[in-house]
C-alpha cells in the first residue's frame, strides 16, 4: 500500500473517530458531529401519535405474532402454518380481521396494561345472563353518541366494549355512560369497558 493510501486511510479513521466522539484533533469531524447530533435531537422533539403503538400491537396480533400466554403462541407454534393452528388461535385471527374492517385504534388486548395508550379499563359487573344484552345496550348507546364501537367476547363469558369517541361528542358519550354508572371517556376519546358476569355469592 502506498504512503499516500496509508495517509488517506489514517485520515478517514481519524474522521470516523471524530464523528464517534473519540478524542481526535479533527475539526471537520467535530463540527459535523455537532450538526448531526443537533439534527437528530430536533427530530426527537417531533410529536408522536399516542395511538401508533396500539395500532402496531393490533397489527402484530392480527399477524399472529403476539402471544396470549398460551402454548399456541410459543415460539415453535408461531412459526407453524396457519392451518395447523389450534381452533382458539384461528378464532383470534378471525377476530383480528373483523376488527380491521372496523378500523384501527379500537383494539385493546387483554394482557399488558402498560402498553396501552388508551384510558383505563372500567369494569361493569352484571348478572351472567345479562352480560351480552348489557354490552349490546352499551354499544348502542355509544354509537348513538357518535362513537366507533367494537364488542369483543372475552374470557369467562364477559364482553369487552372498546370505543373511540370524537372529541366533539365526548359530552354525549358521557351522558350515554351515566345510566350505567360509568365514567366519561378519556380525554383522547378512548374508552374500554369490561362487562363481566357478577360472581355468584355463597348461599
Amino acid at each position: 500500500m502506498s504512503n499516500r493510501q496509508d495517509a488517506d486511510d489514517r485520515d478517514l479513521d481519524a474522521w470516523l473517530d471524530g464523528l464517534r466522539g473519540r478524542p481526535a484533533a479533527h475539526t471537520e469531524a467535530a463540527a459535523q458531529r455537532e450538526a448531526i447530533t443537533a439534527a437528530h435531537a430536533a427530530r426527537a422533539n417531533e410529536p408522536q401519535d399516542p395511538q401508533e403503538l396500539q395500532r402496531l400491537l393490533f397489527r402484530l396480533r392480527r399477524e399472529g405474532l403476539l402471544g396470549v400466554g398460551t402454548d399456541a403462541t410459543a415460539p415453535a407454534a408461531r412459526g407453524a402454518p396457519r392451518w395447523r393452528l389450534p381452533a382458539a388461535a384461528a378464532a383470534l385471527l378471525a377476530l383480528g380481521l373483523a376488527l380491521t374492517m372496523v378500523g384501527p385504534g379500537l383494539w385493546h388486548g387483554s394482557e399488558e396494561p402498560v402498553l396501552r395508550s388508551g384510558g383505563a379499563v372500567q369494569v361493569l359487573e352484571v348478572p351472567a345472563a345479562d352480560v351480552a344484552s348489557t354490552a349490546q345496550r352499551l354499544a348502542t348507546a355509544l354509537k348513538a353518541a357518535g362513537a366507533d364501537v367494537v364488542v369483543v367476547e372475552s374470557h369467562g363469558g364477559g364482553r369487552e366494549v372498546a370505543a373511540t369517541v370524537p372529541a366533539q361528542r365526548l359530552s354525549d358519550a358521557a351522558a350515554a355512560l351515566a345510566p350505567f354508572a360509568l365514567k366519561p371517556p378519556a380525554a383522547d376519546g378512548s374508552l374500554r369497558i369490561d362487562v363481566r358476569p357478577r360472581a355468584a355469592t355463597a348461599p
Binding site: L53, L56, L57, L60, L66, G67, V68, G69, T73, A74, P75, G109, E111, E112, V114, L115
Partner: peptide, 12 residues
C-alpha cells in the same frame, strides 16, 4: 423470543 407479556413488553 418469549411469549405473552414479556414479549409485548419487549416490543414496547
Amino acid at each position: 423470543r418469549s411469549d405473552g407479556k414479556p414479549r409485548q413488553a419487549a416490543i414496547g
